[in-house]
Design a binder for these strands. Structure first.
Lengths: 156, 156
DNA sequence: AGCGATACGTTATAATATAACGCCTCGATA
DNA sequence: TATCGAGGCGTTATATTATAACGTATCGCT
């Protein structure tokens, strides 16, 4: 991976902190979880980064706000995933803020192997879910589509 | 994950060793790679397992055949992935034999979070690729769809 | 006030993956 | 057949990623 600069996402696609907090409240109530300082800080970090964030990179940079040990950070990020406000990107061992926080679960992530940029595009829900339903015995919890390749900027 | 038993795949879907070797030959020629004993052994292990195989599980069981150190095993499995004969399943940190070795690259993997079984179903290529092409600047190398959920047997 | 569930801080350790380097082997070519 | 370069393997060490365990704190409820 050449560098860690990420292109800013159009503001229209970025969830405002307000929207995110509204979702957080709703989902915390539903799930019997709590909205805490650590989680809010973790969310802020993901939104600022505007791209994938790796746990141990956070540890080595000195982000203030109390997220100082691996376990703490993993817990905060996993909570955000549970609340539907972040993705875990398994192929990168990283977390990223969700843009489409109010849409269906299935999401398509385009991962550029050159520059590390990740684009979250509108979920291809119908086609995918149809394909999965064809396998009728399988009850889907989450669908993560991580497509790897090379983004336009890197090929230019 | 409750256990490590995997349901046998219908034989019709399993690539025979002969088919696999034919592909290996073709792809090795194309890519300037070599088909070696380690790689054949690794492939045999994946085919026998008939499910996801984790590198360090292999190390602790005593599979004969010379795959005795992490680096060795990773190299063999990654070679199989390059040759199109295996998947790496990032969400499980595991490798698995490909069933549809002569079909398109895109594959849909249904991962049961209860029993660890993974089913490889026919690739949803057209719909997926359409969705990705909509993002016209992105050149796709690989598409891994890992759907997590609960398989029929675990729900019964 | 007291209780149960949820969350956090901390320390230690487990699990996963790669770097680096020397030697070997294959196959092309002179 | 001698040489050479690329690909591959064995080995040791180390880097990276993730979780266990346990005590304490806090929230929401009755």
């Amino acid at each position: 991976m050449k560098n860690h600069m990420h292109h800013p996402l159009p503001n229209a696609l970025r969830p405002s902190l307000a929207e995110a907090l509204a979702l957080a409240d709703r989902r915390c109530a539903e799930l019997g979880r709590r909205w805490t300082v650590s989680r809010q800080r973790a969310l802020e970090i993901l939104l600022e980064a505007n791209g994938p964030v790796k746990v141990y990179d956070l540890l080595s940079s000195f982000k203030p706000g109390g997220l100082t040990a691996p376990a703490t950070i993993y817990r905060a990020f996993e909570a955000l995933v549970d609340l539907g406000m972040a993705h875990r990107i398994d192929s990168l061992n990283a977390y990223m803020a969700r843009h489409f926080i109010d849409k269906a679960q299935a999401t398509l992530l385009l991962v550029c192997d050159q520059c590390g940029r990740v684009d979250e595009v509108a979920p291809p829900t119908p086609a995918l879910l149809t394909a999965i339903k064809a396998h009728s015995t399988f009850l889907t919890e989450t669908v993560a589509v991580e497509a790897h390749g090379c983004c336009g900027d890197c090929r230019a």
